[in-house]
Design a binder for these strands. Structure first.
Length: 398
DNA sequence: ATGGCAGAGCATAGT
DNA sequence: TACTATGCTCTGCCA
DNA sequence: TGGGACAAGCCCGGT
DNA sequence: TACCGGGCTTGTCCC
């Protein structure tokens, strides 16, 4: 009677993948069996104990018993998992009765992950151990449709375990891939997308659709010609766009629109060009940076049109914190470089104040004439700059 | 970014 | 059996 | 007048 | 944020 109850419980709750792992586990556990009392302990489905207690007190068996699963803790500790971290992140997982940590570990090892990587993955995203073998196989196959090798995927999992494990919906993942491909994003873009913003693929496909729709609508609103093309361009220019909220993106676009008198075609061009990344900024940050940038430039005698020009040809300026930007400008102006020159060659702002200061010193020593030669020399890479300096020194020797 | 956080929805426990 | 409380998962958002 | 060697400028995209 | 360098065009000096 009791055993039949347990059996049906087992068949109902153990999904096929877990059952497959069961037999696998029994063979592989020998090597480490010295650490635990019995193979079943390692798997953390404590059947013998369950058999004893099930009729007496059902609640002790269930996942939500309110206590942590000691055998699971042992198993995780043995695997090198940072249990403290896991507990802090997803405490509920540690109380679960049926888990698949060994299956997961075997699976990942098979794909080339080291023991350390596996431990780190579980520590940071404990829910990973609730995924069944079958689920893992499916999901991996879908990812492999985009990546060339297992190792590539392992690298991403190591960086961002959550991206792979947060969703349990493989259908959705598949739909996402189909959807994103259908946009006309080529294999290379898809690859870059999943590499740099893997979270995109655990979004619901509806959410991704919404963002694309939003971008297309925006293109229409701004008088664009090919709306699909616009959305595609924004995405491939800004791989993070799909993990932003449409609310944020809309707020940023509205803000840009209202802040300086940029025309619709100009805005359209900006957003699908290098300015696409502006959309990532938190709304407050963007507001603050633009406001302070304007203030600073006005105080230096610039017109509003100059601000606009700067942003359009060098949007990255909006990423630079107001204080560093301000001191960077001061540092250049102090050495006799004019604002007009900076506006011509804004790329100089990409370099650190320290770097710029140092270069200015070296050039002053050689009596470099910025008025005559311009400031191109400041925005070269270190190597190129040094080579240039050498040539200059040689020239002045003669 | 990724880790934290919140809300919705779901399953189970408890009465 | 019906209803509530509790806890977990999933998704989406924030910075 | 042609052409080739070398430097500079410019535009990219990639960490 | 800060930094790097590939690759392409243009300019210039010399034979």
């Amino acid at each position: 009677m009791v055993s039949r109850h347990v059996l049906s419980l087992m068949t109902m709750t153990l999904v096929p993948g877990v059952r497959a792992l069961w037999s696998l586990h029994r063979t592989s556990v020998r090597a480490i069996s010295c650490f635990v009392a019995s193979p079943t302990h390692l798997f953390s489905v404590d059947i013998p104990r369950g058999l004893c207690t099930i009729s007496a007190n059902t609640s002790e068996l269930k996942p939500l018993a309110g206590r942590e699963n000691e055998l699971l803790l042992e198993s995780l500790t043995f695997m090198g998992v940072d249990v403290k971290m896991a507990r802090q992140r997803q405490p509920g997982v540690l109380r679960k009765f049926i888990t698949n940590e060994q299956g997961l570990a075997n699976f990942l090892h098979g794909k080339g992950a080291s023991r350390k990587v596996v431990a780190s993955i579980i520590s940071r995203y404990p829910r990973a151990i609730t995924r069944t073998g079958e689920h893992l196989e499916q999901r991996w196959a879908l990812w492999r449709g985009i990546f060339k090798s297992d190792q590539e995927i392992i690298n991403i999992l190591d960086r961002s375990p959550e991206s792979f494990f947060r969703s349990s919906d493989n259908d959705n993942l598949e739909k996402n891939i189909v959807f994103l491909s259908s946009l006309g994003l080529d294999a290379k873009d898809l690859h870059r997308l999943l590499t740099t913003a893997p979270r995109t693929f655990s979004n619901s496909v509806e959410l991704n659709r919404q963002m694309v729709k939003f971008l297309e609508d925006m293109s229409a609103e701004l008088g664009g010609q090919d709306h699909r093309q616009f959305a595609k361009a924004v995405i491939s220019r800004n791989l993070y766009i799909l993990i932003r909220s449409t609310k944020r993106v809309k707020a940023n676009i509205d803000f840009l629109k209202g802040s300086f008198n940029i025309s619709d075609p100009e805005l359209l061009a900006l957003l699908q060009g290098t300015g696409a990344e502006i959309l990532d900024l938190s709304n407050e940050y963007l507001k603050r940076n633009l406001k302070r940038l304007q203030e600073k430039m006005m105080s230096l005698g610039c017109q509003k049109a100059n601000v606009k020009k700067l942003i359009i040809c060098y949007p990255t300026v909006l990423f630079i914190g107001p204080d560093t930007l301000s001191s960077k400008l001061d540092c250049l102006l102090k050495r006799g470089i004019s604002m007009a020159q900076i506006l011509e060659k804004p790329k100089v702002l990409e370099y650190s104040t320290q770097n710029i200061t140092q270069r200015l010193e070296e050039l002053t020593k050689l009596q470099y004439d910025f008025k005559k030669n311009g400031i191109n020399i400041l925005d070269m890479s270190r190597k190129r700059f040094d080579a240039k300096l050498e040539r200059l020194a040689l020239l002045s020797d003669e």
